[in-house]
């Protein structure tokens, strides 16, 4: 190696050094210990969790005095995103947007890093699930659709967005619970499912309100039931499944989790920020439009809630014979 080459390589190394040092987060400027916080989601850009994080970040930014970066780590049905966050430093610089998916994936695929390698920070919203059909359908209520399925076991078809999703499990449970024994067709996402509901291939579909807002607004679909305990404020005329003698409640939550052993100061900062952001009228307007139900749960409650949720899903997966 000539002297010149060595000097060049030295120069490159120095260059790297400068860049690396430059990128090191500057010492605590605001009240939060990091200038840049990475929010990781398994959802693709424009998907449910992605929009949740990006909208949240827009309101959180000014409050916490940080720059939020949303990072879409796809693959492994959420396992890759969980693995990334689980291995990140537990200093409050990296968080994961939780949905039931990460629990389902842990239980079904048993990846190296599962829900138990993360620490729930907060639960922010419940995402109400509804059952719908196309506008031309003869079914006016869930009770009617279930009744039709019971009487015509060879004709009824139900559909859910993804193979082993919470929604699929819910419909399978409904099928067994009502004795209708309807085949549940799984799809590759909500769009696919919607097409098959709209063209009449399927009798009913299941999904989140925000996902099917466009079709509700344009009158292409009819809502049959909401799978919550109580009716939704923006759809006061839509009965719950329970009211129609189908004892099915689906709790789809949205929250944040981080690597284990987050310092208490970080947890407190998030609890405070989320609470104040939920009260912001402008943000309220946005999440109300998506029918998200704010249910703020601080760390302790979120952890207990997650544990309970895991037990519930484990039981229903076991009942369906999907896991042992």
């Amino acid at each position: 190696m000539t002297y010149r080459t060595r000097r060049l390589i030295g120069g490159i190394a120095l260059g790297i050094a400068v860049i690396v040092l430059g990128a090191t987060p500057g010492a605590t400027q605001g009240k939060y210990p990091h200038a840049t916080v990475t929010l990781v989601t398994h959802s693709s850009p424009g998907g449910g969790s992605d929009v949740f994080l990006r909208t949240l970040a827009r309101y959180l930014g000014p409050r916490m005095g940080d720059n939020f970066v949303v990072s879409n780590v796809r693959g492994g049905s959420g396992a890759s995103a969980v693995a990334k966050v689980a291995q990140a430093p537990a200093d409050g610089s990296t968080f994961y947007a939780t949905t039931p998916t990460y629990i389902q994936t842990t239980l079904l695929s048993k990846p190296e890093f599962g829900y138990d390698s993360l620490m729930p920070v907060v639960v922010v919203f419940l995402d109400p699930e509804v059952i719908y059909t196309r506008a031309q359908s003869p079914h006016k209520s869930l009770a009617e659709a279930v009744d039709f399925a019971r009487r015509n076991p060879a004709k009824a078809r139900w559909g859910a967005a993804n193979p082993a999703s919470l929604e699929r499990i819910a419909l399978e449970r409904m099928s067994r619970m009502t004795g209708a024994r309807v085949p549940v067709v799984s799809h590759e996402g909500g769009g696919d499912l919607m097409i098959n509901v709209l063209n009449g291939t399927l009798d009913i579909g299941i999904g989140e309100v925000q996902e099917i807002r466009g079709q509700i607004d344009s009158g292409q679909i009819r809502l049959l039931a909401v799978l919550t305990d109580k009716r939704l404020p923006d759809f006061p005329d839509l009965p719950t499944a329970k009211e129609q003698d189908v004892n099915l409640v689906v709790t789809k939550f949205r929250g944040l989790a981080g690597p284990k052993n987050l310092p208490p100061a970080v947890l407190a900062a998030w609890e405070e920020a989320i609470q104040s952001v939920l009260a912001d009228p402008a943000y309220k307007k946005e999440y109300a439009h998506e029918s998200l139900v704010p249910v703020f749960m601080p760390h302790d409650q979120a952890a207990a809630f997650t544990d309970g949720f895991v037990k519930e899903v484990t039981t229903s997966l076991r009942d369906l014979g999907v896991i042992k």
Partner: peptide
């Protein structure tokens, strides 16, 4: 074969 990278 147990690799989460291949799940998708």
């Amino acid at each position: 074969f147990g690799s989460p990278d291949l799940l998708g």
